[in-house]
Design a protein around this nucleic acid. Structure first.
Lengths: 159, 159
DNA sequence: TATTGTTATACTCTATAACTATA
DNA sequence: TATAGTTATAGAGTATAACAATA
């Protein structure tokens, strides 16, 4: 509680408190959502990281492993193990790029495509928003959209 | 894109799509927020899990380790290592409960109390909401509050 | 017998550094 | 020499199972 907020109805202290409260709640809600998603990934036989790796792959746009690492914002070395598991599960295939034999292109298989569609459903599961009306959901979406608009804040770690 | 949403302006398909989009955005935003928080925890010399353990402790209400595990929703066995690190850092003390010598009560030290206040600031940092007006922040807070109201969804894993 | 904290252990996730095969 | 993928390795985080002390 700042001094200004004790005296005014809408000072800068209020903004900070409101926003802080919103941030803490959002993080808390997201943790609950992710926990639920992780359970459903496990039911599909996938660990969370493997599921998210598959989700990042566009079935219609084969990608070198290097780019997948970039999209996942993790080191190249991790991608090897993730793709190993996806390949063992028959969801992805590695193909050497004839144009540059150093590169390996990642192809989503038919089974991979179907699993990926399930993953999209899991990640879009909105049971936890059940308490909101459709109008409120639309509003929430708009606000969160506006927050992360103009250059996706998740990628703003340029160091 | 469902069939119904192709023909109507506000069918049930729209609700599901809106909500799914909102959910994915919220998870994405929260990941960005947590990433930023983790960096600041590191600057305080704490790993994310240790920081969150300290944050869960109420300096005015000493807690047995068993209850901390429950609040963190993790196994008792993890708490041992987390409290080890907090104790080494001089932020928490273990005290055998005279009433039940099996229990060890966790006391937040003076230094722990100050660090915990810093953690609260870090967890309330709303720089990522900068694009919103104060009214929008208030609305966002209200909506997220409503979602997680009536029994905190993060704890709804009764199995 | 049941419970608290602990230990031993294992698995997932992620990072760094060194290696290989290409370019 | 630079880059793509890999390997080896290490640390954080979390879970299960077994154990000691206490109830």
């Amino acid at each position: 509680m700042t001094l200004s907020s004790a005296f005014t109805g809408s000072g800068p202290g209020d903004r900070a408190e409101l926003a802080g409260d919103a941030v803490r709640r959002i993080v808390h809600l997201a943790a609950a959502i992710r926990h639920q998603q992780d359970v459903e990934f496990a039911e599909l036989g996938l660990t969370p990281a493997v599921a998210r790796a598959l989700y990042e792959l566009d079935p219609d746009l084969p990608l070198p492993a290097r780019d997948l690492a970039e999209q996942l914002r993790c080191d190249r070395s991790n991608v090897t193990a993730l793709v190993d598991k996806l390949e063992q599960a028959g969801l992805v295939e590695r193909r050497v790029d004839p144009a540059d034999r150093r590169q390996k292109t990642l192809l989503v298989t038919g089974a991979g495509r179907r699993t990926r569609e399930r993953l999209h459903q899991v990640m879009s599961d909105s049971r936890l928003l059940a308490a909101l009306t459709t109008e409120e959901v639309a509003m929430l979406r708009e606000l969160v959209w506006k927050v992360s608009d103009g250059g996706c804040p998740a990628r703003c770690d340029p160091e």
